[in-house]
Design a protein around this nucleic acid. Structure first.
Lengths: 232, 232
DNA sequence: CTGACAGCTTGATCTGAATCAAGAAATGGC
DNA sequence: GCCATTTCTTGATTCAGATCAAGCTGTCAG
């Protein structure tokens, strides 16, 4: 990878406190690449050759089985994916594709494991990242098992709203097809769910959403820190 | 805790390669306790004061929201639970109760974090354990999103069958109520799902299940290593 | 043995969500 | 700008699974 890209990568939380020597050893074998939209980066079942870090753009994690496909998560800058597979030297459980043009850092997994065991600071960052990813999936799982489709959508809108600065309106960060799959429903059903939310002050216009009656929406959504909070 | 219990704990994979000194420091503040069935050990939302290790018995992990309750997992010996909350010093995302009389090891979480940072061998074991838990939840999530209720039950039966030595019959390890919740369905629907599986050679008698037509059951279940395999 | 109770099953019905089938609206290429 | 393609919405219908309501079965205390 090019030397000009190094400072940008070095400043990521994952790498900032590791030693220069180990950082160089890690980057020596790394690739920083820009991929077009809709490119399949990894396929579930393949051995975990690289750890991926999304630097710019957005990557969709998904899985297939029984002729069905489901979106399991969206990774935004700066986030990693398939960390557990790399640490365990196992196969990927999820596939990944870019959802828009994206800059992605690829770190060879044997190198990551080497330095994980050498560099205490790096291993701590990794563990925090891994624990966070773990808790995110648990929250997703609770969301799916304990809520109806409309409740999931309502809470998701409230989350995006907070992410985007609580201005009373928000932009959907993904197309509705993807959002539907992420929320565990069909696109048709997402449309209808938006219809239901009209009664709670939710006005949709393409990818723009206005929340005109937050109290009503929250009464419906019943947001729960143990499912919706991104930080803990 | 009593000195007599130490060797048993020391031999657990999580602790076997750490230094004596660190092991003693960890155990000094630990409790090894036996709890009766149906005792709530932790409640979601509480701060993670202890890391739990199930030594004997069985512990159910579950969560509540919106007047609904769902079983998220069952922990058998020797398994840990709420490791991520302990490492992140955050609140528990799940509640836990004993499903039968159980012997459980409680490790104060500040002590676990201290020694995690001091003892390389321990931290590696922890990371492997954490990565494994993470991958398990991802698999659960895929199971729920990509399969119907009958498919989930069929695959679960095949899993128990393998766990118990592929003798052609198996014992359900939990009562049907719990199994239903674990599989994301109601007890009534579990009954009906067993009814459907009769056509595939599945004969149920209380907690005993016979699989009389494995090929048919597998055709229905379409087991998938990336969802069902426990080891990778 | 008997009654009470929990756990499970079965049947009837209802409901949330998927599917099927058109349209409508946005998007992109030329 | 205009057509072609994709994305989204809307309506009709079907289906899986939840809920409601009895009934059944095994267990256990007395």
């Amino acid at each position: 990878m090019r030397a000009a890209d190094l400072p940008q990568v070095r400043s990521l939380k994952l790498f900032e406190s590791m030693t220069d020597q180990n950082f160089e050893a890690l980057m020596e074998a790394a690739y920083l690449q820009t991929f077009p939209a809709q490119l399949e980066l990894i396929r579930e079942g393949d051995p975990a050759d690289f750890l991926y870090v999304v630097i710019e753009g957005c990557v969709e994690l998904f899985a297939r089985a029984n002729n069905r496909e489901s979106t399991l998560g969206m990774v935004h800058p700066v986030g990693t994916f398939i960390l557990a597979a790399v640490l365990k030297d196992a196969v990927y459980l999820m596939s990944a594709r870019t959802s828009k043009r994206s800059k992605v850092l690829l770190l060879p997994s044997d190198r990551v494991r080497d330095i994980f065991y050498k560099d205490d600071s790096f291993s701590r960052s990794i563990v925090v990242e891994l624990a966070s990813c773990y808790r995110s999936v648990v929250k997703e799982h609770k969301d799916l098992k304990l809520r109806t489709a409309v409740e999931r959508l309502a809470n998701r809108l409230l989350r995006y709203h907070v992410d985007q600065g609580e201005t009373g309106s928000l932009k959907l960060p993904h197309d509705k097809r993807t959002l539907a799959s992420l929320l565990g429903m069909t696109p048709e059903n997402l449309s209808r769910a938006f219809g239901t939310l009209k009664g709670y002050g939710v006005v949709v216009n393409g990818g723009s959403v206005k929340l005109n009656d937050r109290p009503a929406l929250e009464t419906l959504a019943k947001p729960n820190a143990l499912i919706d909070d991104r930080t803990t």
